[in-house]
Amino acid sequence: MKIGILALQGAFAEHEKMLGSLGAETFEIRQKHDLRRRFDGLIIPGGESTVQGKLLAELGMLDDVKSAIESGLPTFGTCAGLLLMAKKIENDSRAYLKTMDITAVRNAYGRQLGSFSTVAAFGSLGDIPMTFIRAPYISEAGEGVEILSEVGGRIVAARQKNMLAAAFHPELTDNTTVHRYFIDMVKNPR
């Protein structure tokens, strides 16, 4: 199994490390030609969505990534990655890949002073630690979107077919639950 990690900006090395510890092979996607390699899953990491979104477009990768996701490539977006996949961002006129039927709120908990960590349930897999850094949440989820986690009444993790989105950063903790869930998505596509 080979997972491509979008490495335009942000915390991509943390995903590489975590997937490596789970025995998955990874490589970094920085340019259009990297997308021509064969891979079974894609990670869109945390960082700044404005930066990653702009680079995706200007490096000519936006349409390729969008069509790969639409044709079923298992994809996991954390934080900025969630925003990039969202159909709509409530408090921002920008939208990027628009592959996932969710509406997100950007910087939903405010500035850095609003960043926090907590423990909450992830699907049926029990409680996991969750780190929220200037995080978004999901304000609306369409039909066919499975809600996996809620914190304080807000949706913070969800899945729609081949897409998994988390507002928090499992790659910043030692807990591998979410990444194992994603590997399972890659192995057993819906």
Binding site: G10, E14, G47, C79, S115, T131, I133, R134, L172
Partner: peptide, 17 residues
């Protein structure tokens, strides 16, 4: 300590930028 972790984490999100 939790605050320090969160603050370190924000810098991690800025990497490559």
């Amino acid at each position: 300590n939790e605050r320090f972790e969160l603050n370190k984490n924000l810098a991690q999100m800025l990497k490559g930028g």
